[in-house]
Design a protein around this nucleic acid. Structure first.
Lengths: 206, 206
DNA sequence: ATTAGATTTCAGAAAAATCTGAAAATAGAA
DNA sequence: TTCTATTTTCAGATTTTTCTGAAATCTAAT
């Protein structure tokens, strides 16, 4: 094997690397539960993202200590979310998986999927309820008018959110990054909080 | 009690009203689980929002068929989220609760709380991991450089999101509605999808 | 200070979500 | 097609979350 100019990691550095990856995986996994996806699904995604290399089912099982079935199901969901993709290495029968490496496109995928699961069903239900409820007529009691108004208010609020989501996070959307930049520039409010505590990136500029 | 000019609901209309409310409560409750809050907590909020009237613990228990303890705990969380408030009726020893009636301020509260629970802990963890991981030096192996880059990318992405959240959804923020309007106007992308299927609001204009 | 109505707490029960593992199905190589 | 490495499925086990209900605590009126 031709020894390229690549620096070799000392065992100590390698251990630290693994440790850092594991911590990232654990944090992302914890988030997973908050986001309503299973811990394992989030962990598999974290593993593939943070290592950046394509991995097969067995590697994932070993690294995360989870069952084959669990990996299979998690991987399927991640593929549906379109945050990882299948890779086939020639001369190898196994399937490998690789994570989307661009953070913004990853965030977009997450946003898209969440809107789909969280907002769309609510809007559908609201439409249905609005039809089912007593309609407003010339002599409607206050109750009925208020109900319809409240339903409409919620519908309008979430409707606007969905429109924006499609516009910026949809498959053909302008991109979350664009939206974020637009908003960041917008001349409103006073707070300019949360500057990242540290930035590790040094001379290595991209 | 002086019979004002208020129209009286027929029993049939009243039943439809209750039915519509119940459906709304059920939908909102279902969302609750997706949002990582308990079904009951979401249902209590939905009940208070959709009826608009202050209710006491016993009324909530009866209407939702849940235990006293459950109502107590749900109400406490909702107060923390600041989406409902306590009301005291003079000459009544019980506490009543009433929901925020403005949808945008409600959405802001939800966004604020979610960022706090979902993004902030992740950012903290990322900072910690970045420090713990091997630092980039002049002879760092590729592995280490990539790890730090990926950590920074995630940190930047979520950092921007947090900044925006503070700006628009924070306690002194410019308001989600403002943000939404800004974005809706923004001259990007092609899709103008999702026009609400129907709008129930008729001549009754606010 | 007493009392009774109202609220909170929390241990254990119930329900829901997640995970395992082995059997069944699938798919590439020969 | 046959063979076999690989993947998927899903019933039951495990873990986590949520809920109940009654005892403990609180609170405001007398």
């Amino acid at each position: 094997m031709a020894r390229k100019t690549k620096a070799q990691s000392s065992p100590a550095v390698k251990a630290q690397l693994i440790e850092a990856q594991d911590r990232f995986i654990a944090s992302w996994g914890r988030m997973g539960s908050v986001w309503g996806i299973s811990r394992t699904m989030a962990e598999v995604h974290a593993l593939l993202y943070i290592t950046g290399k394509p991995m097969c089912t067995d590697e994932i099982m070993d690294r995360l200590s989870v069952s084959r079935g669990n990996v299979s199901m998690s991987v399927r969901s991640l593929l549906e979310w379109a945050v990882i993709e299948k890779v086939r290495l020639p001369g190898d029968r196994k399937e490998y998986f690789q994570a989307e490496q661009d953070v913004w496109s990853m965030l977009r995928a997450i946003a898209r999927e969440r809107i789909k699961r969280e907002v769309d069903p609510l809007l559908d239900a609201l439409d249905e309820i609005g039809e089912l409820a007593p309609q407003i007529g010339s002599h409607s009691p206050e109750d009925v008018i208020e109900l319809q108004h409240r339903l409409d208010d919620v519908r309008e609020g979430f409707g606007l959110i969905t429109t924006l989501a499609h516009k910026f996070a949809g498959p053909r959307g302008a991109g979350l990054h664009t939206a974020a930049k637009l908003l960041a520039k917008a001349p409103v409010g006073r707070s300019t909080k949360h500057t990242s505590k540290r930035s590790t990136r040094k001379g290595t500029g991209r």
